[in-house]
Design a binder for these strands. Structure first.
Lengths: 198, 198
DNA sequence: ATCGTTTTATGATTAAAGTCATAAAATGTA
DNA sequence: TACATTTTATGACTTTAATCATAAAACGAT
């Protein structure tokens, strides 16, 4: 996350997006740095028969879509507003200038990319070698640590739909529903009127 | 990749590892920056019943294991020498000092992490939403672009065993063998005395 | 308050990759 | 060169999550 002052110094603009608006699409060449002011963005892929895989979900203060920007490569996924969202948008040239002139920001970017790489490493191993219960729990526990889920008397409220959990773990909704029930039976989760707590 | 001169200026040491030696293990806290002089390193996880998932394979000039170093987190995977390997090892404090005093290196690190994140994004989507043939082809095409596979009159020689392809794509050896045969039948690959060409 | 959409839910069936068993070929090593 | 290990290979079978069908509950928008 880059401070507002610094972004403004380099000519950032603000832009609003409605729910379901597309920020950029898979295959496009990147030309901006994006940072969320408010709202929620998901990055995801669709395969040939329309099945979605969610690469990540991003909230206030987080940036997204930088890797292709640094590599001059096409976006490997789409970015879509999950709800009404306001973004800071900084053109690539200005962003690169900001980086050059502010070495400390590079360190922040590095830490941010490192964090995301870490998540992807963990989930990649989960998805390819573990059973549904393990995958779902790992995702939930990651979510508690990194997507500020709220804690109340029942525990942490897992603020994802079953479909989202499926799209993040590579499972189908029905499988997620059954898996969550099985995890509840084992005492790993609580389900209180359809909401999941951990 | 950081230049030898710069690494030496900050007190790098060289160390040799035999085939199958462990550089670091999942769960360890990181204390060094690693860069390959010669040889080959794999980073991988093992699940409870011993099944392996290879996060990545690294060659000459490449560094590995930085994300947890930046985050002060435990390694999410093991690093093992696939063959006899010589490494540059730079203690964390020296590495951080090097970064601070050489901002241009930060940009290189960013590009490197971005590249790896890009690969993980592509493979994550593949593994969770595509069939074996698609996954295997994607891995092979990525390999051609990023792990310098040799080209000869038959095409690019895919320098991975079936087992490695399986461990990189989340498939079992038998499935990989059958998938490769199917891809050959479709004309996507060639198999010339058991070696795979694309 | 109503209607359309999304989310959660459950049962029956199917398909696809995993598992198991076995072996030949290739490779590496003493 | 001989022997052990690794890699590739193939057939039979099993398991597990996907698929398909259907529906109730919840949510959102007008």
């Amino acid at each position: 996350m880059i401070t507002v002052e610094l972004l403004e110094k380099y000519g950032v603009i603000k832009k609003s997006f409605d729910k379901n608006d597309i920020i950029f699409e898979e295959g496009n060449l990147p030309s901006n740095y994006y940072q969320i002011i408010s709202g929620e963005i998901k990055m995801s892929n669709y395969n040939d028969d329309g099945r979605e895989f969610i690469q990540g979900i991003f909230y206030n203060g987080q940036s997204f879509g930088e890797p292709p920007l640094f590599l001059n490569q096409k976006y490997p996924a789409n970015a879509i507003a999950v709800e009404n969202t306001e973004l800071f948008i900084l053109p690539k040239e200005n962003f690169m200038k900001l980086l050059e002139e502010n070495p400390k920001v590079s360190i922040q970017i590095i830490e941010n990319l490192a964090q995301r790489l870490y998540y992807k490493s963990v989930m990649a191993a989960e998805i390819s070698t573990h059973e549904p219960e393990h995958r779902v729990l790992k995702l939930i526990d990651h979510g508690i640590a990194y997507f500020n889920f709220q804690k109340d008397k029942n525990g942490y409220l897992i603020n994802f739909t079953r479909q989202q959990i499926g799209d993040l773990t590579g499972l189908r909704v029905e499988t997620v529903i059954r898996t969550i029930k099985a995890l509840e039976k084992k005492g790993e989760l609580k389900i209180i009127n359809r909401k999941v707590y951990r």
